[in-house]
Design a protein around this nucleic acid. Structure first.
Lengths: 237, 237
DNA sequence: CGGCCGCTTGACTATTATCAAAGATGGTGG
DNA sequence: CCACCATCTTTGATAATAGTCAAGCGGCCG
């Protein structure tokens, strides 16, 4: 059986935002008050840029972030998103993508020195961080599968289902989601264009898979079908 | 500047095979003799399957491996390859993809218990393993970029350039590569079909980017142009 | 009220997939 | 040693999916 189709739980998107296992978060939260600060980012401002040295690890408290890379000719690739409760920036000493706030975003900033101290003091902590990175890798593989083989409807379904599951894991309703990102972000995340994303939303509405009252609120009408699509079961829209 | 375009060194493909930093390898090699065995896989045999529990970490001595996943309807996705000197299986306690030998492959098999012992004894070792996973993640992001935004010629160029760079890093000529995999593996790795891969090879030959005397030996004729293509600099084939 | 930004829709194009068949290549057995 | 077969690769013709270009709609804010 294929675990990548069924094991998706709280997370979607790539590693930067999936490093949020409960245990890691708790450990970090415990350390956080000691020498950390709060940071508030207005919409469309950078948290870091590709190539920057890592100075902090962050815990998202509210808002939403977007991780992306640029090709020399301007093509943009969104690697993932981060939402409240996600811990981000664990994965490397050098940022290997840009990070920016998509809306006003509140973060706890933990200096890397404090983070390293915590890691050195507690081997369990280190192991947990490793486990979180392992999750992140698995997540990255899932995304590779999504963008290398799935059709546009399948990709969008995969995206929406992941958001639904994330809601559920956070005690919210899995039957509707609020999209904090624009169509362009979704398109760049799924390897599509805004037009294709828009048309696919329209198609989903037309066949009764979802309903939308605003362009950023999705109500699931047939989550089973969406799951089947997302899993690549070959069924048509 | 974009580091993903320039920092590629020895590795290409996804994490399973990129966990091969020198230091990690040395540490493993030092431990390996104590309680490890050699394993020889004939072509087209599985090393592990998705969902398996991890029992060993392996060092590839010769041959080549392929990491893949399957969608329910049979679509296959190749996540990466492994070559001699690569250390594989570091990233998770549960295999999250299949691994099979593409040709006769010789491996050093280190029981996971021995590996864990090594990690527990030496915090440095653990840190190095973490660093290797960080590399793997970065590698995964590069691959996401490749398959989500690059054209067929750009993808193939990216693949070939990575192989050339790997050769160079191993003291071999960067001007030619032997492909241990079939067209189908390349296609499933790049998110294309065998026909498109084949046509793109033909196109590369026609415009003088490469030469091939056999279908699995590539001689680079214009590596600069290939690099530009691979980096997504927008230049046409 | 008007302009801007983001979303949607339409017409058309292009890239790649699909279907089909014809070379290569390599191994096996007569 | 050669013929045959299976497998892999290449090439061709056609189709489909998604991209591009362009225009219209709608909400929001100055």
């Amino acid at each position: 059986m294929l675990d990548f189709a069924t094991q998706s739980t709280a997370s979607h998107g790539l590693a930067h935002r999936t490093l949020h296992r409960q245990d890691v978060m708790k450990a970090l939260a415990a350390k956080a008050p000691v020498c950390s600060g709060q940071k508030i980012l207005p919409p469309n401002t950078a948290l870091w840029n590709e190539g920057d040295e890592r100075t902090h690890v962050f815990i998202v408290k509210s808002g939403a972030l977007c991780f992306s890379r640029m090709l020399p000719d301007g093509r943009r690739i969104v690697l993932g998103f981060a939402y409240p409760d996600d811990t981000i920036g664990l994965d490397s000493d050098i940022r290997h993508c840009d990070a920016h706030a998509m809306q006003t975003t509140r973060l706890i900033a933990i200096p890397i020195s404090a983070y390293n101290r915590a890691v050195n003091e507690d081997p369990d902590f280190q192991r947990q961080a490793t486990a979180a990175m392992s999750d992140a890798l698995n997540e990255a593989y899932r995304h590779v599968v999504v963008i290398s083989k799935l059709s546009a409807p399948e990709r969008l379904a995969s995206f929406l289902v992941a958001l639904s599951e994330r809601n559920q894991a956070h005690g919210l309703s899995p039957l509707s989601v609020v999209l904090p990102m624009k169509r362009l972000d979704i398109a760049d995340f799924l390897g599509l264009t805004i037009e294709t994303v828009s048309r696919t939303f329209t198609q989903f509405k037309a066949v009764g898979l979802i309903a939308m009252d605003q362009s950023n609120i999705v109500i699931f009408k047939n989550i089973q079908k969406l799951r089947a699509l997302a899993a690549g079961e070959g069924t048509d829209v």
